[in-house]
Amino acid sequence: MAVTAKFFAGFREATEKKQASIEGVNDVTSLLDELVSRFGKKLAERLYSSDTRELRKTVNILVNGRRLDFLQGLNTPLKDGALVAIFPPVAGG
């Protein structure tokens, strides 16, 4: 099974890729782990805060166009063929 991760704005700069096809992951956490092992420190720094190792609040993830479930969060399961968009919402005006 494979899922597609799509990178936008700063995440594209960190990965130098528009998207990546990832095999063998079954939820969002395992996908992010795999992406970090593939793309390294630059991506890890954008995803996780350095002290708490929690996902930064600047990271927004949509799975098949749907926001992560409030209850499941990063444990949201990924099915074969899932599209996962990762982007940093901007706030200024």
């Binding site: 600047t58 927004n60 926001r67 919402p89 706030a91 200024g92």
Partner: peptide
């Protein structure tokens, strides 16, 4: 639906004028 949680507030937003 798109952005469920408020991104953290930053003290300063550097913006290139042409972007907005």
């Amino acid at each position: 639906c798109a952005i469920p949680k408020e991104p953290p507030k930053k003290p300063l937003f550097p913006v290139l004028g042409a972007t907005p």
